[in-house]
Amino acid sequence: MKIRVKVLRFNKEVDSKPYYKTYELEVDESAVVLDVLDKIKWKFDGSLTYRRSCRHGICGSCGIKVNKKNVLACKTRVKDMVEKFGPTLLIEPLSLKVPQIIKDLVIDKRDFWEDEKRIKPYLIAAIDEHPKMEHLVTPKEVEKLEEAENCIACGCCYYECESKSENRDFIGPMALAKAYKFVADVRDRAKKERLEIVDELGSGVWDCVKCQACIEVCPKDVDPFTKITHLHNEIFEEGVAKKNVATKHAEGFVHSIKKHGILDEGMLVLYSEGVNVVRHMPEAIAMFKKGKIKLPWQMPKSEGLEEIQKLIEISQTHELKG
Rank of each mutant, 00 (worst) to 15 (best):
residue 2 K to D: 13
residue 5 V to I: 10
residue 10 F to T: 02
residue 11 N to Y: 14
residue 13 E to P: 05
residue 17 K to E: 13
residue 42 W to G: 11
residue 42 W to I: 11
residue 50 Y to V: 02
residue 50 Y to C: 02
residue 56 H to N: 15
residue 57 G to Q: 07
residue 62 C to L: 05
residue 63 G to A: 10
residue 71 V to P: 01
residue 72 L to S: 02
residue 76 T to E: 08
residue 77 R to E: 12
residue 80 D to N: 14
residue 84 K to I: 08
residue 89 L to C: 05
residue 94 L to N: 02
residue 94 L to M: 14
residue 101 I to Y: 01
residue 103 K to Y: 12
residue 106 V to W: 07
residue 106 V to F: 10
residue 117 K to C: 09
residue 117 K to V: 11
residue 125 A to W: 14
residue 129 E to H: 12
residue 134 E to R: 15
residue 137 V to T: 15
residue 143 E to G: 09
residue 145 L to V: 08
residue 145 L to M: 13
residue 146 E to Y: 05
residue 147 E to M: 11
residue 148 A to R: 00
residue 163 S to R: 08
residue 164 K to P: 01
residue 165 S to I: 15
residue 168 R to H: 15
residue 169 D to K: 13
residue 174 M to C: 14
residue 180 Y to T: 02
residue 182 F to L: 14
residue 182 F to W: 09
residue 191 K to D: 08
residue 197 I to M: 12
residue 198 V to W: 00
residue 202 G to W: 04
residue 205 V to Q: 01
residue 207 D to P: 06
residue 219 P to A: 09
residue 226 T to A: 09
residue 228 I to P: 00
residue 230 H to W: 10
residue 233 N to H: 13
residue 237 E to P: 04
residue 239 G to Y: 06
residue 245 V to Y: 04
residue 246 A to L: 06
residue 252 G to M: 03
residue 256 S to I: 03
residue 261 G to N: 00
residue 266 G to V: 01
residue 266 G to M: 02
residue 271 Y to T: 06
residue 271 Y to M: 07
residue 272 S to M: 06
residue 274 G to P: 02
residue 277 V to Y: 01
residue 282 P to I: 04
residue 292 K to N: 08
residue 297 W to V: 08
residue 301 K to Y: 03
residue 301 K to A: 03
residue 302 S to H: 00
residue 305 L to E: 01
residue 309 Q to V: 01
residue 314 I to F: 07
residue 314 I to P: 03
residue 317 T to E: 14
residue 318 H to P: 04
